[in-house]
């Protein structure tokens, strides 16, 4: 077994000092070592997108990054979306549009959407469909997920006017 390494992960503005083997994925480190179980792990080989988190503001599959590689980067997980007890607009929109059923894919879709809207606040519908095709929802709520994200995008455009 490889020696454990002492690393610091910056997650949602908090520093987590953890000891991990190099083979520990970021998704497992977030859940097991940082206690942040909002990030779900589905396929463990980059297909389903349930484990999507933001690394330096960019959506990435946390099962395809080793925790040691995430040192020095700003990480955000679903636990970092709400602030002061108020849900993030995307979380509220998912509720309002019935964009979740079992909820397993939800944290991944929320982080994918949050990162995308922050990078491209006026993303068009076609590009948004391409981005949202990245993750799997097996309750097949895609249309409602699209509706929820479009609602937040449109509200943001309205507010920026």
């Amino acid at each position: 077994m490889a020696t454990k390494m002492a690393i610091t992960l910056h997650v949602n503005g908090t520093e987590h000092e953890v000891r991990v083997e190099p083979r520990r994925t970021l998704s497992d480190a977030l859940r097991t070592d940082c206690g942040l179980t909002g990030t779900n792990v589905g396929c463990e080989h980059g297909v389903c997108g349930a484990c999507t988190v933001l690394m330096d503001g960019v959506p990435v599959r946390s099962c395809l990054i080793f925790a040691v590689q995430a040192q020095g980067h700003e990480l955000r997980t679903v636990e970092g979306l709400a602030s002061d007890g108020a849900l993030h607009p995307l979380q509220q929109a998912f509720i309002d549009n019935h964009a979740l059923q079992c909820g397993f894919c939800t944290s991944g879709f929320l982080m994918l959407s949050a990162g995308t809207l922050e990078q491209q606040p006026d993303i068009d519908d076609e590009a948004l469909r391409e981005v949202l095709s990245s993750n799997l929802c097996r309750c097949t709520g895609y249309q409602n997920i699209l509706r929820a994200v479009r609602q937040v995008r449109d509200a943001g455009k309205e507010a920026a006017r």
Binding site: V60, L64, L112, E130
Partner: peptide
Amino acid sequence: HDIAHWPIRQR
């Protein structure tokens, strides 16, 4: 645009 998915292309 035909390479895998958006998050995969970021990495």
